[in-house]
């Protein structure tokens, strides 16, 4: 798939309006800067949403002393409010060649649409967003291409423009990219990894562990193509070509062989899911057959990744 073929198909007023009802669920991640995301079980001396009272301490702002309570209880009580912080989001988009194959799955387009939708939801909440395209590292370069930090919904166009410049190519460098980025990132937050995870388990395990160690709240969005799940609709026999490793293998897709393939695939997915579950990483498998709309409005809310505003 070339960049010319890529177009963020969800950037229509109707679809974006549907997204305005959603917000990303965050368990613990928060930024340092005040924002619009209320942080449960955390309070501050000022704010909008009343949280609790506390005894007055010297230095507290008199404006927040609840005088009614003083009158009833004869005790100086100061109101505290639910803390609202800005959440830094880091979306890692896998742009390896495997995301572009098989072409009929349009897996990369699907992933880009998902990322754009998530970015819109993030920006709508005035949180900070950085999209990172995991690309093959050139000499002396980082194994990812970052988009400049976006903070407001007005930056959505920048996000779509950035996404539309991407094309699937090269191998997957999730581990290397995460390591490199986390070393430079100033503020951890929510890390959303959008990938087909067609890599050795050690790679994603290491990457996720690294993110967690650095204080990120990790969410994994596993993109799977329809033809990947049902390869017999793609071919019966032929020469398979691995677009990343550029190796070939002659396969006859008998029933037994199909079962072996699907068993291996399910085992791979199960291992990923199990790992995420173990480390409290929110995981969801999104099939291209479902469509972006269904995934965003039905599957992700059900999985707990998105909530209604």
């Amino acid at each position: 798939m070339s960049t010319a073929d890529l177009h963020v198909s969800i950037a229509t007023p109707e679809f974006l309006k549907r997204l305005e009802r959603l917000r990303l669920w965050v368990r613990s991640a928060r930024g340092l800067r005040p924002g619009e995301t209320p942080i449960p079980r955390s309070n501050q001396a000022w704010g909008i949403e009343f949280e609790s009272y506390k005894d007055y301490a010297p230095g507290d702002d008199f404006r927040y002393v609840d005088w009614n309570a003083v009158g009833r209880l004869d005790q100086l009580l100061v109101k505290t409010f639910t803390a609202e912080r800005e959440i830094p989001y880091h979306i890692f988009l896998d742009t390896s060649a495997s995301m572009g194959a098989p072409a009929i799955d349009r897996k990369f387009q699907f992933a880009v649409d998902l990322v754009a939708a998530l970015a819109y939801i993030v920006l709508l909440n005035s949180d900070t967003l950085r999209v990172l395209a995991l690309t093959a590292p050139e000499k002396g370069q980082r194994p990812y291409t970052p988009m400049p930090l976006a903070r407001h919904r007005s930056a959505f166009l920048r996000v779509t423009s950035f996404l539309e410049t991407l094309a699937p190519a090269g191998k997957t460098y999730l581990r290397e990219a995460v390591r490199a980025y986390s070393e430079h990132a100033r503020e951890p937050g929510v890390a959303i990894v959008v990938s087909d995870f067609l890599m050795e388990p050690a790679q994603y395990e290491e990457a996720f562990s690294l993110l967690r160690v650095r204080g990120y709240e990790v969410k994994a969005l596993h993109v799977v193509g329809a033809a990947e799940l049902e390869p017999h609709k793609l071919f019966r026999r032929g020469k398979l070509f691995d677009v990343e490793n550029r190796t070939e293998r002659w396969i006859t897709l008998s029933q037994a062989n199909l079962q072996r393939y699907q068993a291996a695939q399910q085992a791979h997915c199960a291992a990923l899911k199990d790992f995420c579950h173990r480390y409290r990483i929110l995981y969801h498998l999104a099939s291209t057959a479902s469509g972006v709309g269904a995934v965003l409005t039905e599957e992700l809310p059900k999985a707990g990744m998105l909530t209604l505003r």
Partner: peptide
């Protein structure tokens, strides 16, 4: 003609068959 697949990761479990193809 070759069929492009994202990875041969799962196909390594399937025995290669050059003759029948």
């Amino acid at each position: 003609t070759r069929i492009e697949v994202p990875a041969l990761l799962f196909w390594m479990e399937v025995k290669e068959d050059r003759l029948r193809i």
